[in-house]
């Protein structure tokens, strides 16, 4: 067949694919070993990387090829588990979702642990205060009444869409640890806890909205939000965090959430 032959000829004649270009990237990482160091310090590493690599790949290369003592959390490495939130060039990002090509590699890339939570080692912080706030808003469906027709709690598409945005949270703490109010006052619930409260407050099947609104009407609740939008900017899932907080504020003022009837 003539067509196939031509194709083959073109394939043979075509120049061999150019090798993918690698770059030497400098990473400045804020290191801290509680057994040796009194204070955290910056250490730089040079790594060969491709434009399609992620910051997490760079950290892996350092840990596996240069310094095995570098410590960081990661699990799924694909932006689902929320383990590897860190401060990359001053912004809270997931290391596994930040591509090298999106960063300016003519300068060093600065990587440090998220702020506002106790530093344990290198890029690892104690997440317990964060999860304590999360537990406090009772992040589970509370429905004591008998379902209609005794079987299931039916929800319309519009009712489900009402809280869809806040179901996306992966609890990575990027939002809470980007909040300047949280930095200076660890008692503040923080954006993540309010987002997860929003997910149940605005769920038409849930019956404990008043309890959660009462919890968030606390001195350290939604009113400490100064709408700086750091949380919305930081969220790796694109949740409109500040909007969710504003909706909870409105719900506290109204005494009940604004949920579609059908």
């Amino acid at each position: 067949m003539a067509g196939a032959a031509t194709l083959e000829a073109v394939d043979n004649a075509g120049a061999p694919e150019a090798p993918i270009q690698a770059f030497t990237v400098t990473l400045n990482i804020r290191r801290f070993d509680p057994e040796k160091d009194a204070e955290p310090y910056w250490q730089d590493f040079d790594v060969e990387l491709y434009a399609t690599d992620r910051v997490l790949d760079a950290l892996h290369k350092i840990k596996w090829e240069q310094d095995g003592s570098l410590t960081f959390r990661r699990s799924c490495a694909h932006g689902i588990c929320g383990s590897d939130a860190m401060r990359i060039n001053g912004r809270n990002r997931l290391a596994c979702k930040t591509l090298i090509k999106d960063l300016d590699i003519s300068k060093p890339i600065y990587v440090e642990a998220i702020k506002g939570l106790p530093l344990e080692k290198d890029l690892i912080v104690d997440m317990e205060p964060f999860f304590a706030s999360y537990r406090e808003i009772q992040p589970f469906l509370i429905a004591d009444s008998k379902p209609k027709d005794g079987k299931e709690r039916i929800q319309s598409v519009a009712q489900r869409a009402r809280f869809d945005d806040t179901t996306k949270c992966i609890l990575c703490a990027a939002c809470t640890s980007s909040c300047p109010v949280f930095w200076t006052d660890g008692q503040y619930f923080g954006p993540a806890a309010i987002v997860n409260a929003h997910r149940f407050i605005f769920d038409s099947r849930d019956e404990a909205a008043s309890v959660r609104l009462d919890i968030l009407n606390d001195k350290e609740g939604v009113w400490r939000c100064r709408t700086t939008f750091n949380c919305t900017e930081a969220c790796p899932r694109g949740i409109e965090v500040t909007k969710a907080i504003a909706e909870v504020k409105a719900a506290v003022l109204r005494g009940k959430p604004d949920i579609p009837k059908q």
């Binding site: 304590a132 537990r135 406090e136 009407n217 001195k219 609740g221 009113w223 400490r224 506290v252």
Partner: peptide
């Protein structure tokens, strides 16, 4: 049980 350490008061100055 997580609510105990936060003070609840009727008049909320922040609100």
């Amino acid at each position: 049980p997580y609510l105990s350490h936060r003070k609840r008061n009727r008049f909320n100055i922040e609100k």
